[in-house]
Amino acid sequence: MATQTGTVAPKATSLQMLRLQHVWRRKGERLLIYVLLLLVALMALLPLMWAFAASLTPNAKVFEYAFPFSLRALFPVEFTLEAYEALFARGFGDALKNSFWLAGVTVVLGGTINALAGFAFARFEFRGKRILFLTVILLPFLVPVDLTAIPRFILVNTLDWRNTWQALIVPGLGNSLAIFLFRQFFEEIPQDLIDAARVDGASWMRLFYNVVLPLSRPVLITAALFLFLQQWDAYFWPLLVAPRPELRLVQVAISSAVEEHRTRWNEQLAGSMLAAIVPILLLLPFQRYYIQAVTSSGLKD
């Protein structure tokens, strides 16, 4: 009897210990995951937190707590809006306005024409479809636009478009990726819906506006986000074709703040924060749509 309990008891404890070990190991693992998640989050956030705090700090104190580092570097040292005021006094507001205008026009016009093209590739059979898709959509998609900027620059000069809105808007309207996105989405629309509208005698244009577009909210948001951000981030091209101050865009304004006022650090950071906050506020609520736009560029075949 005594020997029996003697053998059973340790068995029970070892089983319990195994279970306990398992639970602890899972807890430990979870803890490790959280530590890593937090560490990466800190790396993502730290530059933005410091930049934001420093943009609200008098210029002379921008580096005050950065070296040697103390946590106070992540909070404004002596809260002031002087950097933002100086920035707007030198016309940064116009750059923001210009970028909003450029991005907005591109979303409306570019969104429309790319949706039309995507619809044609998704729902029509026509001669030359495959070859057009390969040469006019796929090939330009693979060629980085910055590598072909010189002839585009010469072309724009020949058209006498230098320092005009056209030079900024028109080359960015036709967009292969947006056409991909629209084509992919429109292919999924049930044929019945289209047939029904056709039987009712709707023209293709009416069908596109009254039947197809109302169904396409997700892809419209995705394409709009993508086109907006592309123009908001535009730098190299505007730098070449539109140096006139009245056409200055936000990314160019940041770079000229760096070049013309090398030591006004808080102003450089204030401009950066204003340029960053717009895409952040657009991306966070719509991240699902944005990720869709980005990742589908990798799933093109």
Partner: peptide, 18 residues
Amino acid sequence: LFLLPALALIIIFNLFPT
């Protein structure tokens, strides 16, 4: 007609410069 605007622009501002 659906293709014309986007494709014309891509040809002029992307394909031709390449």
